[in-house]
C-alpha cells in the first residue's frame, strides 16, 4: 500500500478517510482542498517555526510586566517573575509558569524541529511514535499563553491611580511567539510522516 501512489488520507477538516492519488483532490465529504504538494506544508511549518524562534528572544529578554507604584517603575521579565514567585514561597505557581512559559515553547521547538528533520532525512524511527509526538505538540501548544493572560488579568485588576500594572513589550512578543508556534504546528501535515521511506507501520487493519 505504501509504495503505490494511492494512499489513505484523513481529511484534516472532517476526518473522513479519503483514498487519493498524487493529483490535487478535494475531500469527498466536505469538499475542502487536500493539499497534494507536501513540500508546501514542510516549508510553511519551517517558516512559521523560524518566526516563532525569533520572537522567543524578545519574549524572554524584554519585560513582560511593568508595574508603576507611586511613580516608581519596576519591570519584570518572565524569568524574574518566576524567581520572584519562587522566593515568595508559591512554589506550585512558580512551577506552572516555568513549565508553561519556558519549557513548553522550547519543547515545541525541539519537537517540530525533530519532526521536520526526521521526515526530511528519513531517520529510521517508528512512525507511530512520530504521530504521537505530533499529537503532543498540538495538544501542549496553547498552554504557553498562560503567562500573557495572567499579565492581562493583572493589568485590568491592578489599575488604580497610584498603582498600575502594564503588559510590557515582552508580552506582545510572547503572544506572537505562541501564535506562530501554533500556526507552525497546524500547518505541519501528518502525511509528511507517512511519506517517509522504510518503516511500514501504517498497514491495513
Amino acid at each position: 500500500m505504501n509504495n503505490s501512489k494511492f494512499e489513505y488520507i484523513r481529511c484534516h477538516i472532517c476526518e473522513a478517510v479519503n483514498y487519493v492519488d498524487n493529483k490535487e483532490t478535494k475531500c469527498r465529504r466536505c469538499h475542502e482542498k487536500i493539499e497534494h504538494n507536501l513540500k508546501f506544508s514542510y516549508h510553511k511549518t519551517l517558516a512559521f517555526l523560524i518566526t516563532a524562534i525569533i520572537f522567543y528572544f524578545p519574549a524572554n529578554l524584554y519585560p513582560i510586566l511593568i508595574s508603576k507604584q507611586f511613580g516608581k517603575t519596576t519591570t519584570n521579565t518572565i524569568m524574574e517573575g518566576i524567581i520572584h514567585l519562587w522566593d515568595s514561597g508559591s512554589y506550585p505557581i512558580a512551577l506552572i509558569i516555568l513549565l508553561a512559559s519556558v519549557f513548553v515553547p522550547l519543547l515545541k521547538f525541539v519537537l517540530i524541529i525533530y519532526l521536520l528533520i526526521s521526515t526530511k532525512y528519513n531517520i529510521h524511527s517508528s512512525k507511530l511514535d512520530k504521530h504521537k509526538l505530533f499529537y503532543i505538540t498540538e495538544a501542549i501548544g496553547p498552554w504557553s499563553m498562560v503567562d500573557v493572560f495572567v499579565v492581562i488579568i493583572l493589568s485590568v485588576l491592578i489599575h488604580f491611580s497610584e498603582v498600575k500594572i502594564y503588559p510590557g513589550k515582552g508580552a506582545t512578543a510572547f503572544g506572537l511567539m505562541v501564535f506562530f508556534t501554533m500556526i507552525s504546528a497546524l500547518s505541519f501535515d501528518p502525511r509528511l510522516i507517512n511519506h517517509q521511506k522504510g518503516d511500514t507501520s501504517n498497514a491495513k487493519p
Partner: peptide, 12 residues
C-alpha cells in the same frame, strides 16, 4: 474505514 487522530493508524 477510520484513521486514528493520534497515531494515524488505519482501522476498519
Amino acid at each position: 474505514l477510520i484513521i486514528c487522530k493520534k497515531c494515524h493508524t488505519l482501522h476498519k
